[in-house]
């Protein structure tokens, strides 16, 4: 595993010291390689498509364009990347917004080095962390939506079940035990939930753009 191609990582963080520290931590790990450091969302939107990383560490609070908006725009690019949000505040709304925009996980600063590296590997492997609070929000969002013919608009019963467990505070492992499936299956479900959340979110953005209302 360590012999494999290192995971390319880009950092979008306005504080140069934090950015440097983060880059330092990443570079120290054999499995990761920092390919870009950006001080603003605008710079990231220019640099990242030119040199696409596999994982982006994105600060939510950025001067100018917000991290959430940056995520949304990056996810519209035809590049394969996973976004991990970095935030000082465990502000459920903005985290959820970021996840909706296309991020697949978040870390609360300050992070321990090991925690950061684990998260990068986790996200790269397709894992998506989801807390009960986020799960609750996802459930609420999909409940509010009206029934639609499109599959992406609705959650499958199994996904719904996973979300319910998450909302009740169960860990992935526990959910796997409860549902008689594997840890990987649970993660896949969560990945798919995230995907649907992105699609929904995009549809919403388009709808907003045309002044319509989907909710």
């Amino acid at each position: 595993m360590k012999k494999e191609m290192p995971i390319t990582v880009a950092i979008v963080e306005d504080d140069p010291e934090v950015r440097g520290t983060l880059a330092n931590i990443i570079e120290r790990d054999d499995g990761c390689h920092c390919v870009g450091e950006y001080g603003s969302a605008e710079a990231a939107l220019v640099g990242i498509p030119q040199q696409p990383p596999r994982v982006v560490l994105m600060d939510i609070d950025l001067p100018g364009m917000s991290g959430v908006e940056c995520v949304r725009r990056l996810c519209e690019q035809p590049v394969q990347l996973q976004v991990l949000m970095l935030t000082v505040y465990k502000d459920a709304d903005s985290i959820f917004d970021a996840l909706s925009a296309g991020a697949v996980g978040y870390l609360v600063k300050p992070v321990r080095a090991a925690q950061l590296i684990d998260a990068i590997h986790d996200v790269y492997g397709g894992g998506a962390p989801m807390t009960s609070g986020i799960a609750r929000k996802v459930v609420q969002l999909f409940q509010k939506s009206r029934p639609s013919a499109q599959e992406v608009d609705t959650l499958s019963p199994r996904e719904q079940e996973v979300l319910d467990f998450l909302a009740q505070g169960y860990l992935y492992k526990e959910i796997a035990d409860r549902t008689g499936s594997s840890y990987a299956t649970v993660r896949t479900h969560i990945e798919r939930i995230y995907h649907k959340l992105h699609v929904r979110s995009r549809a919403q953005a388009v709808a907003r753009y045309f002044g319509q209302k989907t909710l």
């Binding site: 465990k90 459920a92 709304d93 807390t131 609070g133 609750r136 459930v139 609420q140 505070g169 169960y170």
Partner: peptide
């Protein structure tokens, strides 16, 4: 909503860190 989210996340994180199973039962909406 914000309060409940916060409490739930805190409990999950705090209890998880202490290796205690956390079970939440919150009003869905």
């Amino acid at each position: 909503e914000s309060l409940l989210s916060y409490i739930a996340d805190f409990a999950q994180e705090f209890l998880g860190a202490a290796n205690l199973a956390c079970r939440l039962e919150l009003p869905p909406d």
